[in-house]
Simulated scan of single mutants.
Amino acid sequence: MNGCTSGGGEPAGDEGAPLGAMTLYPLPESVPLARRWFTKLIAPYGVTCRIDECLVMISELVTNAILHGQSDEEWQVRVEWYREGDGLRVDVHSPGHPGRVRMRPPSQEYLFGRGLHLVNELADRWAVGSSRFGGTVVSFTVADAWRL
């Protein structure tokens, strides 16, 4: 198995069906896999926003999910993306308590701990909440993703 399953829309409650989704194993090699699959699966939708910025944010959130996800059982990271008007929203689901997700002050001593700062700078909005799968969802939105 390649570490990723992907596909389009299953019903997602009130938020509508995702344009696409992927499920990843909590392994380091899932981060570049998430970038490749997102690039491939978003292409048919004609997104005009800067995909490279989305890839940075996806990389950071998937990395955080892998590093900080917690479960006593086998688990996976789920990435979903939605169209919201002219905006693109990406959700990253993982096990663990949403209250543990917070932006920490960056440190010159450590190479880690800047992921949410990057998301905060690149996204028009981002949020943390309880995942409908149980655990945590961290989302970012890029406004005007379908405008020229």
Rank of each mutant, 00 (worst) to 15 (best):
T5Y: 07
R147M: 13
H68D: 02
E109R: 14
H97C: 11
V128Y: 05
C49N: 09
P105H: 06
P11R: 11
G3C: 04
Q70L: 13
S139W: 10
V31L: 01
I42F: 05
G96M: 07
I42M: 08
L61K: 04
D144A: 14
E15Q: 11
A34G: 02
M103W: 00
P95K: 03
G16P: 04
W81T: 00
V119I: 10
D144S: 14
L118C: 10
G135V: 05
L67N: 12
E80P: 02
P28F: 04
T136L: 05
G3S: 03
G16V: 04
M1A: 15
V90L: 07
A127M: 06
V56W: 07
D86P: 08
C49Q: 10
M103S: 11
A65H: 03
L55C: 14
G20V: 00
R147F: 03
S130R: 14
P18T: 13
Y110D: 09
E84C: 05
H93L: 12
A123D: 01
N64P: 02
Y110Q: 09
A21H: 11
R83T: 05
N64F: 04
E73N: 08
T23S: 14
D86A: 14
L61W: 06
A143W: 08
Y110S: 10
D72K: 12
P105T: 11
S59G: 15
V137H: 01
R125C: 10
L118K: 02
C49R: 10
W37E: 15
G69D: 02
S94T: 05
Q76S: 14
H68C: 06
F140H: 03
L41V: 02
G113P: 01
W75C: 07
M103V: 15
T5M: 11
Y45G: 05
W81S: 03
G96C: 03
